[in-house]
Design a protein around this nucleic acid. Sequence first.
DNA 1: AAAACGGGGTC
DNA 2: GACCCAGTTTT
Length: 390
Amino acid sequence: MRKDAHGTTPAQPPPAKLQRALLRWYDAEKRDLPWRGTKDPYSIWLSEVMLQQTRVDTVRPYYQRFMETYPTVFALAEAPLERVLGDWSGLGYYRRARMLHAGAQQIVRDFGGELPREVEALRSITGIGPYTAGAVASIAFDVRAPLVDGNVARVLARIFGVEEDVRGGAGRARIWQIAESILPQERAGDFNQALMELGATVCSPSSPRCGPCPVRGMCVAFASGEPERLPNMAPKAKPRPWKRAALVATLGADRVLLARRKRDLLFGGLWEPPTLDASNDRDEGDGARLLALAGVKAEVPVRAGEITHVLSHRKMTVEVYRAELRSAHATLGQNQAGASLDEGDGEYDAIEVVARTSAMRRGMSTLARKVLRAGGIEVNMGRSEGEATK
DNA sequence: AAAACGGGGTC
DNA sequence: GACCCAGTTTT
């Protein structure tokens, strides 16, 4: 059984109680939106597609205009794509409009102009993914189909105390499983909308207004005192800054290019295979020269704050990194003269080509391979220089 | 798994 | 002005 941070087992809200509380709240508090109060599957499909990645207030006028211009799936299917795109203009994500148009034609061709009621059939329509299929099935047809969007994921993660990353595989699957398990027999569509409405108006991402929340009494996150701590969103795909790395590989099997870091830098005075920040203009000086010397033009993505040992390509702490660099330094010999570089504000003040020790061999070739491949360059390690092929 | 997709919002 | 938002398709 899963335990929370306090080592206790979170109580699972009884579905019946949750269903009653949410539906009751929804009936009383739901916003009056143009696509509410219709059961027309086409209207609901249209509104759901428009609402993908788009705020309610932005969608509102577009929805009303579309319903006037294209009142039926046939009208939409027969309209020229150019006109549909024109009417979509300003909503963004124009692929949605293309898929909507193609989907309408598909519905006319494959389903006689009627949207199917089953999730599986809906999923076959272009532009209808897991969320939209659940939305149309449940809202238009009251099929007991679950649905998960960003709001639902947040609300359910909080109520049920889901600690797993709701974007990742396990957490995502768990949210969908919960969403299905709590669906009422009746009014599945309203229940799904209640979850989304709660997320949109009460259970907001950063500062949920738990006061008026109809289900705070059965909410694990509320009980924890820090409801905003959930859901856990995995470290959002961190943008990976690009670094250019000049490497030893193309100097051949037995030689290594090293550069001495300037004294006032981190690891100052130590030698390392030069790694250069390509996003930094300063590297135009030393950097370009080092790259030319190494004969390598490749880029490798490096995560900010992460230290990758340039000799072994192992991830490590700063302390270990420093120790290993010192050790490499000692191995190479402090009396290596080193060709001095012109004064610049780059990171290095000297370069040297030295014999590659056996201790370096494996790590370096691994690193070289990786970096060169990242740069779109195929390598044949162990061969003489110049044999790297595209 | 991750990027691309387009606007608009917030901090 | 960078950062965040959130489904579907594509790679």
